[in-house]
Design a protein around this nucleic acid. Structure first.
Lengths: 109, 109
DNA sequence: AGTTCATTTAAGTAAAAACTTATTCAGGTT
DNA sequence: AACCTGAATAAGTTTTTACTTAAATGAACT
């Protein structure tokens, strides 16, 4: 279950604000068809569809045909890579670290 | 201290693999001049410099001139925005959530 | 002063990204 | 069958990105 079907870099997929908003919308409801998602944006269906393909290539959404509509669902799991990455750097902005950096900078001058 | 000098979206800044590697290098040592950073890549000085400018515009690096060299230092703080963002979605891939989703999918079919 | 080293700025290129419109395809309705 | 609706595909446009090379600035060394 949940293989690494990532053709596309997750960091790249979430870089675009439109795609982050799509992720947010899909987190709110669990399954949304393209035409409903499109209604939330100013751009056309095709453009939204392409953003969803990018998210799909990053493994962040799963699509499924129901009748004539394509419904999209969030799969947040690949975001764990981002969380792991950013967690490593969190030590650089913790309260103690900030204080230490400040002291070192004062010393320098 | 630490104003929001972000001309550039942090998500955009970390989307590029070269820039993520720059962040990593800067996390290892605390201050590195451009020529030393450039040595770690195959591209030219100018290209690396431009990536650093993008990181600077996102508030992720601070530069400082020392003699004829420009030294760069990491400022990880803006990454907190990424951490906050991703933390919200972490509930969607926690063990319990994965189990629940699986059950719901089975029910559907 | 002249040269070398570190970097920036300017200018240009190639490829990718973010769209658009037009056309095709397929499901559902009448 | 004819028709509408939802979406995918094809093809083209514009903008941005990720570089490059060449020239300019500026500090340090001889």
């Amino acid at each position: 279950m949940s293989e690494n079907n990532q053709f596309r870099d997750v960091f790249d997929a979430i870089a675009d604000p439109t795609r982050r908003r799509l992720i947010q919308l899909l987190a709110e409801a669990d399954e949304i068809p393209l035409h409903e998602l499109t209604a939330q944006f100013q751009m056309g269906r095709t453009a939204v569809s392409k953003h969803l393909t990018i998210l799909k290539d990053a493994g962040l959404v799963i699509d499924r045909k129901v009748g004539r509509e394509t419904r999209f669902r969030l799969n947040a799991f690949p975001l764990r890579e981002v969380q792991d990455w950013v967690a490593f750097y969190s030590k650089f902005w913790s309260a103690n670290m900030m204080r230490l950096n400040q002291l070192l900078e004062e010393e320098e001058e």
